[in-house]
């Protein structure tokens, strides 16, 4: 399928990773080899085989709707890269044109 550096840059954008040119050069051929190898899955799995998303059969699990204390705000914010007024401080989320 020959993955180009442009394809990889596109995927990286979707995955929110700002790859450098040098990384793209290394990654494109590596990912190409990996994808070619994993494409072997199409050899065996026929139409009528149901997919498995989970190893063991799962049923929905309910619990009683009880009030439980949540983690203390100070403790959670202590791990944040930036906090202000007891909230997470984040960079701007809207573009200039917004």
């Amino acid at each position: 399928m020959a993955l180009t550096t442009e394809d990889v840059a596109n995927l990286a954008r979707l995955a929110r990773i700002e790859l450098s040119e040098a990384e793209l050069e290394i990654l494109a051929p590596q990912l190409d080899v990996i994808l070619e190898s994993v494409a072997r899955v199409s050899e065996v799995a026929a139409q009528d085989i149901p997919p498995t998303s989970h190893a063991l059969p799962l049923t929905n699990v309910f619990r009683d709707d009880e009030l439980r204390p949540s983690l203390p705000r100070e403790l959670v914010l202590a791990g944040a890269p930036a906090a202000e007024q007891m909230r997470f401080r984040v960079p701007r989320i809207l573009g200039e044109e917004a």
Partner: peptide, 10 residues
């Protein structure tokens, strides 16, 4: 397809 292979392995 990978999820189907998972079924076959099980």
């Amino acid at each position: 397809q990978a999820q189907k292979v998972r079924t076959l392995i099980s």
